[in-house]
């Protein structure tokens, strides 16, 4: 187990290293000059040169990378080019906000998706299944900006129940933020819901088709016991991995959703950074997203290993 963790952590480190190189080098392909960009078209040559010096832009590329990477590891993520404020506290605060939103969304779509998936599997090829499958496929396919705007049209503008705009104060706590979280959370959830429902359905169908479920039924066990103890215990195991893989999707969904609702999360910050060409912000934000994604996958693998006797106990 310890060795396994070590190897997985090693791989995550490698991933982050390569991802950082990719992100760093992509952002270096920028047409035009960063200093020029920051100072605008009418800046003087001298001012630009000074800024270049200040930002280390005259150094060779690999030195620039090493400086940046060393800074990132030690917590010095540089200053925003736009606001001239340190990037790190800003990113971490927004990360917290995104986590809040993601948390609410996960609480909605994971249980609901599992329930729908199991129902669809039990009613396989009959109407409930066809309905759930069609709806979940539609949900998976609908971009968040479409569902988000639709929800705003209905619940904010039409019915006036919930705020259309979620641009809360970035430092708000959960209770203050909650009313503003509902619509964006539902928006993000719909995609995840369809995804979890489909995966749970196929996982459950696989289990329902096994000999050991037939055996359990023919042991004369009550139907509820067969479902709860024999089917679900096996069918929900892969869902752990599915939920983790869905995190990547969730992160993408957050970028769009936060933009739709103006919610001050990491995704909104990244879009903002890109629109303003704020290089340090983009680099740090992207790295954090990659790290979160990698770690959640690791967590899922460990949980899966602990829940699955075949892996936990070995041969």
């Amino acid at each position: 187990m310890a060795l396994y963790l070590l190897r997985r952590l090693g791989f995550i480190f490698l991933t982050l290293l390569l991802a950082s190189i990719i992100i760093f080098s992509i952002t270096q392909f920028l047409p035009g000059d960063v200093a020029q960009m920051v100072l605008g078209q009418f800046a003087t040559e001298v001012a630009i040169e000074n800024l270049r010096e200040e930002l280390g832009l005259n150094l060779p590329l690999h030195i620039q990378y090493l400086n940046w990477a060393a800074g990132f590891i030690t917590g010095d993520w540089g200053d925003s080019l736009v606001s001239r404020m340190p990037v790190q506290p800003m990113v971490m605060q927004r990360l917290g906000n995104s986590a809040m939103l993601a948390g609410v969304a996960i609480m909605i779509y994971v249980p609901l998706g599992i329930a729908l998936g199991v129902i669809a599997a039990l009613k396989r090829d009959r109407y409930p299944d066809q309905a759930i499958t069609a709806v979940s496929m539609a949900f998976v396919g609908l971009p968040e900006f479409v569902t988000g705007l639709l929800l705003i049209a209905i619940f904010a503008i039409g019915l006036g129940w919930l705020p259309a705009n979620s641009s809360i104060d970035p430092g708000s706590n959960f209770v203050q933020a909650f009313p503003y979280l509902i619509l964006p959370a539902i928006t993000v959830s719909l995609t995840g819901l369809g995804y979890i429902a489909r995966m749970t359905r196929s996982g459950t169908i696989d289990v329902l088709d096994t000999d050991y479920i037939r055996a359990a039924e023919l042991k004369g066990l009550p139907a509820a016991q067969v479902l709860l103890r024999h089917v679900l215990r096996n069918a929900l195991l892969p869902t752990v991995t599915v939920v983790a893989m869905g995190i990547g999707w969730l992160l993408g969904g957050l970028i769009v959703t936060e933009t739709v609702f103006g919610y001050p999360g990491l995704g909104r910050l990244l879009v903002y950074g890109i629109q303003r060409r704020d290089l340090p912000l983009i680099q740090a934000g992207s790295m954090i997203v990659v790290a979160v994604y990698s770690l959640s996958n690791l967590a899922a693998d460990i949980i899966y290993g602990l829940l699955n006797p075949r892996i936990r106990l070995g041969r």
Partner: peptide
């Protein structure tokens, strides 16, 4: 694959 696609797309298009 460990970088969410939309994020990667944004970063690439940005440059």
């Amino acid at each position: 694959l460990s970088i969410p696609p939309l994020l990667l797309a944004m970063v690439i298009l940005f440059s």
